[in-house]
């Protein structure tokens, strides 16, 4: 078995996502301790793949890989992993990596750690910290055996360390990609027409704690008084209380406003991915142990409705 660290990179519209560079940077720390090399793995078509600071880059160029396709990507990655036997395979815990990491684990019988926040080598053993239970707990685990699959939360490591210009070695797909059961049809771009929350300097952001659609109005009134726009965490959007254009977080948009005032958002890792760089974060939540209080600059354990109404009177 080999000791290399494979980083499964991801891209959209020809641009690699930050998490790809973040993982390559981390892999460069881990690979020497494992006695192996950092290998960036790129699947796509017509890409400029010489962008990583890895020891080497494998670029599988095939028309069937031009857009993400979980079936095609899975087949290629499984074949590569079986052929090269890396010690560690890193995915992003992202829309693409989430389709592949656990699948590869079940296919290969090798262990998988999801929600990974950090990795290190202690006494020649790989240790992974995983942020489970909505960020309320950290599990420290050691994957057993000769190969581990780890899916890493975006934003866990600096991206700069993974940026470079290693020449990619282009290869044909190691498996036939005809007869796929999943076929990419078309890309759907973000819906226009609504305000662009990424362009706002102030956001009043509501979470599950808002309780119902009828209460969104209160947040809107407060936002209006502050010259802000209302945004939300995923459950609010899934419940249909606000349109998807207002969703902050991993499956929504990344925002960096001057003010991010959070009402009833607990701060699951998926939400933090979208807002942790805001300049001033104030969180109001009834759960004094909500993970958001570890990230917010200011906080209060209080009823959001009472606080919002009292703020309206003062503004």
């Amino acid at each position: 078995m080999g000791n290399d660290v494979f980083v499964i990179t991801e891209h959209m519209d020809g641009k690699f996502s930050d998490v790809s560079f973040e993982m390559v940077g981390k892999a460069k720390e881990l690979a020497p301790a494992l006695g192996g090399q950092t290998v960036a793995v790129v699947l796509g078509s017509g890409l400029s793949a010489n962008v990583f600071a890895s020891d080497s880059t494998i670029y599988v160029d095939d028309a069937n890989l031009a857009q993400f396709n979980p079936e095609a990507y899975g087949k290629v990655i499984e074949a590569l992993v079986k052929e090269k036997s890396p010690r560690l395979v890193m995915f992003g815990w992202t829309a693409t990596g989430m389709d592949l990491a656990a699948w590869l684990s079940a296919r290969t019988g090798k262990p998988c750690v999801a929600y990974a926040k950090d990795l290190c080598i202690e006494n020649n053993t790989l240790i992974v910290n995983s942020q489970v239970y909505g960020g309320k707990m950290i599990a420290e685990v050691a994957p057993e055996g000769d190969m581990a699959i780890v899916a890493v939360l975006a934003g866990s490591f600096p991206a700069e360390a993974g940026q470079g210009s290693t020449t990619a070695t282009q290869a044909a797909s190691p498996v036939a990609l005809d007869g796929l059961k999943i076929k990419f049809v078309e890309a759907i771009k973000p819906a226009g027409g609504d305000v662009d929350i990424t362009a706002q300097t102030k956001l009043v952001s509501i979470g599950r704690g808002i309780g119902g659609k009828e209460n969104v109005e209160l947040a809107e009134e407060l936002a209006e008084k502050l010259g802000a726009t209302v945004s939300a965490s995923r459950p609010v959007v899934d419940a249909g209380w606000l349109p998807r254009t207002r969703q902050v977080g991993k499956s929504g948009l990344k925002v960096k406003p001057k003010l991010y005032l959070m009402l009833g958002i607990s701060g699951a890792p998926e939400h933090l991915e979208g807002m942790k760089s805001a300049e001033l974060i104030i969180a109001v939540n009834t759960d004094k142990k909500a993970p958001i209080f570890n990230v917010a600059h200011y906080g209060a354990t209080a009823d959001l409705f009472e606080v919002a109404e009292a703020m309206l009177e003062l503004l």
Partner: peptide, 10 residues
Amino acid sequence: FAGGNAGKYS
């Protein structure tokens, strides 16, 4: 996908 992007698959 992230950022409000999506893909349609058959």
